[in-house]
Nucleic acid binder design. Structure first.
Lengths: 225, 225
DNA sequence: GATTGTATAATTGTATACAATACAAATGCA
DNA sequence: TGCATTTGTATTGTATACAATTATACAATC
């Protein structure tokens, strides 16, 4: 009875820690910080409006994820993500996601099949509409559904970590109409292989799909430079 | 002048946080905790002899690494590692380490070549002596040198995380004389491929090597059960 | 002028205090 | 009894206080 609740207390269930984590993550990925820049606990705490404790906890997570480096008694510095890193992540991702779709083909259930088909249809729709915002959303969903369908805690975990790094890079990738249409075809092929239970084909198509995405990304990058 | 130093202050540079992290990690890997067991901050803090703060920071790292799950306002529970997890990790590891040795073949320098050859020779020596303690050490070193030689921050990072999970599983693996000798041969082949610059062979041999290690592990496990 | 020493400030590391939450036991009441 | 309410306790979440460490500024020395 001494408590007063308001809706936001329930809606944003996330702790300060994860809010801080995401905040700093965003800033790093959006290039707000230079590579090697020192992050000062008190300043960040003030900026976000919390105490040092959640900031420190977020630091520890970012550290384990390789986004910052912690130097004892000195502080943490931002690691930055080079083009080489992106290429390496895609190389790893193609292997892991290939494995994921292979296992998904073996383990997917009825509900996940439907979800995957529905998502694929929505992607056709938004590609036609050229709504790249929504398209990106369902593209992420398509891949995410495959991670879930493979029923592997290990793969899900690794892929989640990899995706954190490249989420911003992927966003722009589909904005090229030609790439969006190509991706659509690749998704279709992957989906068909999954539904037909052809795991070798599914894996092979996925590896190819991820590699094309990287190629497209690099091409776009060179254009804008 | 008000300070009193002793050697250990310098030697163990590691913070309480990382001490706590390793402490809990060990306990999880050694099976001290049941799967799903709740870890209580104050109890652990008391047990290790520190305050809650470093314990919490260690929790956050273990959480990101997937070793514990954090439930808001309730606490963290141990995730445990199933046989299925181990198999999946080895499947991933064979792919990633295959990629690592491929890149290592392309990027290795003279010093790393010598280190790798020396390590291989020491492994021959300790296999003959049946000193499995030392053998395990140099086996780890052999793989670790390859991670370094591939010059990829991304791969090093992923492999470090994977190895954390299976370090205890690997330890027993080489204790079977037959496996130790087989591993020796496989290492030799990998090394030769690296030195000859044959990256396809190196990758293929590494994938095979990691898969054999898993097979051996599973065989041993079934025997003891 | 460059270097060293020293005081001071800024920052991190750790411990503790307090608030919020979850859950269980106790209580009250029909 | 059955059930809602409250009270109590353990635990986590957050903030803050204090200690240890490192960086900075500046004077002293050569």
């Amino acid at each position: 009875m001494h408590y007063r609740y308001n809706k936001s207390d329930y809606l944003d269930q996330e702790s300060l820690r994860s809010r801080v984590f995401n905040h700093i993550l965003e800033d790093i990925l959006n290039g707000k910080y230079e590579e090697g820049q020192a992050l000062v606990e008190t300043k960040l705490a003030q900026e976000i409006g919390v105490s040092r404790t959640p900031v420190r906890e977020a630091f520890r997570q970012l550290e384990l994820d390789g986004l910052v480096t912690s130097i004892p008694n000195k502080g943490v510095v931002v690691n930055g993500i080079s083009d080489k890193d992106i290429e390496e992540i895609f190389a790893v991702r193609s292997l892991i996601e290939g494995l994921a779709v292979r296992w998904a083909t073996e383990n997917i259930n009825e509900e996940q099949r439907r979800d995957l088909e529905e998502t694929a249809e929505l992607m056709v729709y938004y590609t036609k509409k050229k709504d790249y915002q929504q398209l990106a959303k369902y593209d992420a969903r398509f891949h995410s559904l495959i991670y879930d369908s493979c029923q592997s805690k290990v793969l899900r975990h690794i892929l989640r970590s990899l995706m954190r790094y490249i989420q911003h890079a992927r966003l722009g990738s589909l904005k090229v109409p030609k790439r969006a249409e190509q991706a659509l075809k690749e998704h279709r092929e992957i989906l068909e292989a999954i539904l037909a239970g052809k795991k070798d084909i599914a894996e092979q198509k996925m590896v190819h799909h991820v590699n094309s995405a990287l190629e497209n990304l690099l091409k776009e990058k060179n254009k804008t430079n």
